[in-house]
């Protein structure tokens, strides 16, 4: 709101100028206000009842028909799958935004040392295995698409650190397809379910497990590749289109 006063910008190294005093006063005021906020919030939190079931019972009752037995996965991919659909959109959107800022910043000069090289050779296959395991195990134990996807993303980051770059052939449409696979499969599944007479994201119970696994597999791939692509920090260049 103080757009009309530019004197805030002048940060003088001299001690106790007018600006510094003003800043000190501002901070004191800020600290006081924030302490008030924290106290209020703390009071609000403590005023909550010490026991509340939330939705845990309802989730437990419906877990059987959800297609998975890990309640968190059931919430993420069935009960509140619509949130997850939009969230995959958010992730893709972040990448679109980063790409719109321009091409990959120029390559960094530092070459990977032998340590990083060997490390990536050893770790990358292991990480991919772990990702696959997390994806599979997510149906009934801690894990799932996001965890698996991020481990896959970490493998990608390691590869990038070791100097690997995607081949020119992969950079066009194929890369974009893997990036949208998660959201795309979600949207397609939704559309098909609506076409056959169901509701948005209403899985028939007998197909629930399969559909969830399908969506999760696509999501894992997309999340992994998207996170690695975000790490590159710009649009990979290989001819403008395809």
């Amino acid at each position: 709101m103080q757009q009309s006063q530019p004197l805030k910008k002048t940060i003088n190294p001299k001690p106790m100028t007018e600006g510094v005093k003003k800043q000190l006063l501002f901070r004191l005021l800020l600290v006081a206000l924030l302490s008030l906020l924290a106290t209020g919030l703390g009071y609000a939190v403590l005023s909550l009842p010490s026991s509340a079931p939330g939705l845990s019972e309802l989730v437990a009752e419906n877990l059987e028909t959800s297609g998975v037995s890990n309640p968190v996965t059931a919430v993420l991919l069935n009960f509140r799958a619509y949130d997850t659909l939009l969230e995959l959109g958010v992730l893709l959107l972040a990448l679109l935004g980063v790409w719109s800022f321009g091409a990959v910043p120029e390559r960094r000069e530092s070459f990977p040392g032998p340590v990083l090289d060997t490390l990536s050779r050893l770790l990358v296959p292991l990480l991919i295995l772990v990702a696959g395991y997390l994806l599979w195990v997510g149906a009934h134990a801690p894990g799932g698409a996001f965890q698996a996807g991020s481990v896959l993303g970490a493998a990608g980051v390691l590869l990038l650190l070791a100097g690997w770059r995607p081949g020119a052939r992969f950079v066009g449409l194929p890369l974009r397809i893997t990036l949208v696979a998660g959201l795309g499969v979600f949207v397609i599944v939704s559309a098909v379910l609506i076409l056959v007479g169901g509701r948005l994201l209403e899985y028939p119970p007998s197909f629930a497990a399969t559909l969830i696994l399908l969506i999760e597999a696509a999501a894992t791939l997309s999340i992994g590749i998207t996170l690695a692509a975000l790490f590159i920090g710009g649009r990979p260049e290989a001819g403008p289109n395809n």
Binding site: L55, L58, V59, N62, N78, F79, R80, A81, Y82, D83, G198, R199, L200, L201, E202, Y203
Partner: peptide, 12 residues
């Protein structure tokens, strides 16, 4: 419109 057929509060 109950997304997923669950209905609030479980679903969206």
């Amino acid at each position: 419109y109950a997304v997923g057929g669950w209905g609030a509060p479980l679903g969206i």
